[in-house]
Computed example of a mutant assay.
Amino acid sequence: MAENRAIDAGRPAFLSGDPTAAPARQAPVPTSGSRRDLGGSHFLEQQRRLRIARGAKPAAKPVAKHCWIDEDPRWPGRWPALLLAWVRDENDASGGWAGRVAFVPGPQVELVVALVPATYLTAEA
């Protein structure tokens, strides 16, 4: 038993194997959404109101538009898609445009995001 006391001499009481010793309780640490730190949602609401008062406009959300992919050699047939953005097609020697689209080509559940030349994209149903 004396050898156990020698090993446990430098440890806190609750780690020394004494079942009657209880660990010291720590004060709760405020989390980012609590009212103790910066006021929680009240702080965020104040910041939003200040931005509006200064004339700052909220950032515009990007809008995806519906389109159709018609007879692209990589995906034969006609596929509904969402047009995410227009970009210059670097692979096209004439410097044409391509649409970054998201679609599901076929019965498998696989979302494809690809650059499709503008010649294969239509807006009509």
Rank of each mutant, 00 (worst) to 15 (best):
residue 6 A to E: 15
residue 6 A to D: 14
residue 7 I to W: 10
residue 9 A to H: 10
residue 11 R to L: 11
residue 14 F to P: 00
residue 14 F to Y: 12
residue 15 L to P: 00
residue 16 S to E: 00
residue 17 G to I: 06
residue 18 D to Y: 10
residue 19 P to K: 11
residue 19 P to N: 09
residue 20 T to S: 13
residue 22 A to V: 09
residue 24 A to Q: 04
residue 24 A to N: 00
residue 25 R to G: 10
residue 26 Q to L: 12
residue 27 A to D: 02
residue 29 V to D: 01
residue 30 P to S: 03
residue 31 T to V: 08
residue 32 S to Q: 08
residue 33 G to H: 09
residue 34 S to A: 05
residue 34 S to K: 11
residue 35 R to C: 03
residue 35 R to G: 09
residue 39 G to F: 13
residue 39 G to S: 08
residue 41 S to H: 04
residue 42 H to T: 09
residue 45 E to R: 05
residue 46 Q to S: 14
residue 49 R to K: 15
residue 51 R to H: 15
residue 52 I to W: 14
residue 52 I to H: 13
residue 52 I to L: 14
residue 52 I to G: 02
residue 53 A to Q: 15
residue 54 R to L: 15
residue 54 R to T: 05
residue 55 G to I: 14
residue 57 K to P: 04
residue 58 P to I: 08
residue 59 A to C: 03
residue 60 A to Q: 12
residue 60 A to E: 13
residue 61 K to N: 02
residue 64 A to T: 03
residue 64 A to G: 09
residue 65 K to G: 00
residue 65 K to P: 00
residue 69 I to S: 01
residue 71 E to F: 01
residue 72 D to M: 05
residue 77 G to P: 03
residue 77 G to F: 07
residue 77 G to Y: 05
residue 79 W to T: 01
residue 79 W to H: 15
residue 82 L to Y: 01
residue 84 L to Y: 04
residue 88 R to Q: 11
residue 89 D to S: 14
residue 89 D to A: 10
residue 89 D to T: 01
residue 90 E to D: 10
residue 92 D to R: 06
residue 93 A to K: 12
residue 94 S to G: 03
residue 95 G to T: 06
residue 95 G to W: 11
residue 96 G to Q: 07
residue 99 G to Y: 02
residue 101 V to F: 03
residue 101 V to D: 00
residue 102 A to C: 07
residue 105 P to K: 06
residue 106 G to E: 07
residue 106 G to V: 06
residue 110 E to F: 09
residue 111 L to E: 04
residue 111 L to A: 04
residue 113 V to A: 04
residue 114 A to Y: 06
residue 115 L to Y: 07
residue 115 L to E: 12
residue 116 V to H: 02
residue 117 P to C: 09
residue 117 P to Q: 10
residue 118 A to K: 09
residue 118 A to W: 04
residue 120 Y to N: 13
residue 120 Y to F: 11
residue 123 A to P: 07
residue 125 A to M: 04
residue 125 A to F: 05
